[in-house]
Simulated assay, not measured.
Amino acid sequence: MRVAIFGASGATGSLLTRRCVKGGHHVTVLVRSREFPYFAGHVCVVHGSVFDPLAVADTVRAADVVFSTLGARSLRREDVLERAVPLIVQAMQETATTHKPVRRIIVLGSAGALPDSLDFQPAWRRWIVQKIIYKTVLKWPVASQVFQYKALSTSGLDWTMVMPPMLTNGPLRGRCCVDGDALPLNATHISRADVAAFMFQQINSPQWIRKGVYISY
Rank of each mutant, 00 (worst) to 15 (best):
R2T: 11
V3K: 03
A4Y: 05
A4L: 08
F6T: 02
F6V: 10
A8T: 03
S9V: 04
A11K: 14
A11T: 14
T17D: 10
R18E: 15
G23T: 11
S33R: 15
P37Q: 11
Y38R: 08
F39Q: 13
F39N: 10
A40W: 00
G41Y: 10
G41W: 10
H42C: 09
V45P: 01
V46P: 02
G48S: 10
V50K: 03
F51I: 00
D52I: 07
D52T: 09
P53W: 12
P53K: 11
L54R: 12
A57L: 06
D58R: 15
V65Q: 05
L70K: 07
R73M: 11
S74C: 09
S74I: 09
L75W: 13
L75A: 04
E78M: 09
R83N: 14
I88H: 02
Q90S: 15
M92T: 05
T95Q: 09
T98G: 12
T98H: 04
T98W: 06
T98C: 03
H99E: 14
P101H: 10
P101A: 10
V102Q: 07
R103N: 10
R104E: 09
R104N: 10
I106M: 08
L108A: 05
G109T: 02
S110G: 15
P115V: 06
S117V: 01
F120N: 15
P122W: 08
P122A: 11
W124S: 12
W127S: 13
W127M: 12
V129G: 00
Q130S: 14
Q130M: 12
K135I: 00
T136E: 06
K139N: 04
V142Y: 04
A143L: 10
S144Y: 01
S144L: 01
V146K: 14
F147K: 07
F147S: 05
K150V: 06
A151S: 13
S153E: 15
S153F: 02
D158S: 12
T160Q: 09
M161D: 03
V162F: 03
M163C: 15
M163H: 02
M163W: 00
M163K: 10
P164R: 07
P165N: 08
P165K: 04
P165G: 05
M166E: 12
L167P: 03
N169C: 09
R175M: 05
D179L: 03
G180N: 05
D181T: 12
D181L: 11
A182M: 02
A182I: 02
L183T: 02
P184R: 05
P184V: 05
N186K: 10
N186R: 13
N186F: 15
T188D: 08
T188P: 00
T188Y: 09
H189C: 12
H189L: 07
I190M: 02
R192T: 11
R192P: 01
R192F: 03
D194A: 10
V195I: 13
V195D: 06
A197P: 00
F198D: 07
F198C: 05
M199T: 03
Q201W: 06
Q202F: 09
Q202H: 11
I203Q: 06
I203E: 04
N204G: 14
R210I: 04
G212M: 00
G212A: 07
V213H: 04
V213I: 15
I215Q: 03
S216N: 04
S216I: 02
Y217A: 06
